Simulated assay, not measured.
Amino acid sequence: MKKFLKHYSPNPNELKNHKHLGWLGKHLHHSSLWNFNRKSISKAFAVGLFCAFIPVPFQMLLAAPSAVIFAANLPVSIALVWITNPITMPPIFYGCYKLGAWILDVSIEKDFVMSLEYVWQVFGTIWQPFLLGCLTLSIISSTFGYFAVQLTYRLKAYKRLRRS
């Protein structure tokens, strides 16, 4: 898997000279952004999963600078935001709304319809549970993702040591 990801990752030397990347371009030479090791991948999972559940368009634009700031693997951080894509977004964000409503102990809209029109009509009443659910899921998933990668790497290393 590591070889596959490295093969399809962009070349950092080509990216840092790209004019359209602005301030981000000069930071793209940092090795931790391109390493596939326990530290950078676990940070990438935290960054990518956190950004995936933030209800804004173009979540990749949040994940890229966050990966640079936290020295996380850039391609993995950006790829993970695609957990919420146009197909998965409606059920995931409805789940976020239900989670937030449960936390706040408020009733869920009885006639909830999965359409952008309906959401805009009732946004005044659903925004608090929706945003709370999104933030909660962002924090939980990023924390879980970080520690799951840490544990996976450690278990793999332990198995390698036991074999030798």
Rank of each mutant, 00 (worst) to 15 (best):
126 I>S: 01
150 Q>A: 06
146 Y>V: 05
161 L>F: 12
62 L>A: 13
148 A>M: 09
27 H>E: 10
124 G>M: 03
78 I>L: 00
22 G>L: 14
68 V>Y: 10
77 S>C: 02
129 P>G: 04
135 L>K: 01
33 L>W: 10
129 P>E: 04
116 L>D: 05
21 L>G: 03
11 N>V: 13
143 T>I: 12
37 N>L: 03
10 P>T: 07
31 S>A: 13
101 A>F: 02
61 L>E: 12
119 V>T: 13
75 P>S: 15
140 I>K: 05
59 Q>M: 04
1 M>F: 11
161 L>I: 09
14 E>F: 11
146 Y>R: 07
9 S>H: 03
143 T>G: 09
85 N>F: 10
62 L>W: 08
16 K>G: 06
37 N>A: 03
145 G>M: 12
13 N>V: 13
136 T>F: 05
66 S>A: 15
123 F>L: 15
79 A>N: 06
34 W>M: 03
76 V>G: 01
124 G>P: 00
11 N>W: 07
8 Y>C: 11
156 K>P: 00
22 G>W: 10
66 S>I: 13
15 L>C: 14
57 P>Y: 05
37 N>F: 04
53 F>V: 01
89 M>I: 06
70 F>I: 02
104 L>Y: 00
76 V>E: 03
72 A>D: 02
31 S>Y: 12
112 F>C: 01
123 F>M: 11
14 E>T: 08
12 P>N: 07
41 I>E: 03
145 G>R: 13
67 A>V: 01
2 K>W: 06
37 N>P: 02
33 L>P: 09
37 N>K: 03
25 G>Y: 09
140 I>F: 12
6 K>D: 11
76 V>I: 08
128 Q>W: 08
136 T>E: 00
57 P>A: 06
1 M>K: 05
22 G>N: 12
59 Q>G: 04
115 S>I: 05
119 V>F: 15
142 S>H: 05
12 P>V: 09
44 A>K: 01
13 N>I: 13
125 T>Y: 06
92 I>V: 15
112 F>W: 02
92 I>F: 07
130 F>V: 01
37 N>E: 04
160 R>F: 02
154 R>N: 10
117 E>Q: 07
81 V>T: 15
120 W>N: 12
78 I>W: 00
102 W>K: 15
52 A>I: 06
13 N>F: 11
146 Y>I: 05
88 T>E: 08
154 R>S: 12
113 V>W: 05
120 W>E: 15
67 A>T: 02
148 A>S: 10
116 L>W: 13
111 D>I: 08
30 H>K: 14
18 H>Q: 12
153 Y>F: 07
20 H>E: 10
159 K>Y: 12
2 K>H: 09
47 V>Q: 11
96 C>H: 11
30 H>S: 13
103 I>M: 14
65 P>S: 03
28 L>R: 01
132 L>Y: 00
127 W>L: 02
95 G>Q: 05
14 E>V: 11
120 W>P: 09
105 D>F: 06
94 Y>P: 03
12 P>M: 11
